[in-house]
Amino acid sequence: MRREQTLADRITGSALWRSFVRHGYPDTQRNQALIIASNVFLHIHPVKIKRYATKVTYTFCLGGLSFFMFLVLTMTGILLMFYYIPSSTQAYQSMLDIQSSVTFGQLMRNMHRWAAQGMVISVFLHMARVFYTGSYKPPREFNWVVGVLLLVVTFLLSFSGYLLPWDQLAYWAITVGTNIGGAAPIIGPQVNKILLGDFQIAQSTLIRFYTLHVIFLPLAAAFLMAVHFWRIRKDGGISGPL
């Protein structure tokens, strides 16, 4: 006996639907495999993994969370870019505008700021998790090194963003920070000059930090993450007990 066609059946049976969803409902192993393999985003995963790799108390989700915060930061960051003006005379005013007259502006700014702090913490703790489970051991040495670079980029992303509000907090924190860099033996003065583009923090500094913050460093991070995730797959998935 033929079952009556429901609306859902019609939709999922239509040519339009089937043109972009190429698997049935994932309640069979076959469809569960297809859903992972045929979706560009899910395809970051293998189709099946070791049971221990799904245990939350092994990874504490820290790597995934770091990545997720990066995504949140990218999205809220783009929204902020619509309003923020990287000019030493207008930056502070645009911050005030974002907080007081842009719809959900204050919320976007807060989410961006707290996620940025959260990402520094979670990347750091992720490193500790990887260390304490011995997950850097061969064949994962190289991915550990990529991770250390990601840690550095994460610090730099946070640091370059710190100047943008152009308030007292930003200005003096970056003064202290760039002075620390300027204390480097031999190359210190040059480092300081390159970072600031001037003898003190000025418009040239702001545009340098802005460019680093909104395009160069995010691209560098995305590039390194691509390598990082690819290496996890190539090294046989995440580590586990022998």
Binding site: P26, Q29, R30, Q32, A33, I35, I36, A37, L42, H45, P46, V47, K48, I49, K50, R51, Y52, A53, T54
Partner: peptide
């Protein structure tokens, strides 16, 4: 791809 060994799970849904 769907033949699971003892200690394996499907990524969808488990992970």
């Amino acid at each position: 791809p769907t033949d699971l060994a003892e200690d394996e799970v499907m990524v969808w849904p488990s992970l």
